[in-house]
Amino acid sequence: MSSIQTFMTDDHRACDDLLAALEADFSTAKASFAPFKKRFLDHFEMEEAILFPALEEATGMHGGPTEVMRLEHSQMRNMIEQMAAAIAAEEADRFASVAETFLFMVQQHNAKEEQILYTLSDRALSARADELIEAMQKLQA
């Protein structure tokens, strides 16, 4: 049986790697931005379209933690756009500032998901784990 916690946490680490690489060198940011953006947006989508609805259905929980996560996703999408704008305008300082703020936002968001939501998902969705992970992998492809 697969673990949602492991699958999603691994994806967080992959996102971390892309963000760290993007942030490290502004001269290559134009090229590394597209794969970075795709991975983050896919991750949000996997949660909002597949994991969260399944979790809400299984636990009867609406609003609350999943709603907070959706709000934070929209905040992070907005910041990804601000990073894109800074790269397009070749504003290295502005980019560094948005990127670092984004990183802090992502880290505290991920910690909440890993400590609480994914643990809960493994508990509430153990029977459907394989099926859900497969659906999420398809979305990423």
Partner: peptide, 10 residues
């Protein structure tokens, strides 16, 4: 649900 853990809302 126990939301103790990281929670900036608090």
């Amino acid at each position: 649900m126990n939301t103790a853990g990281l929670s900036l809302e608090q």
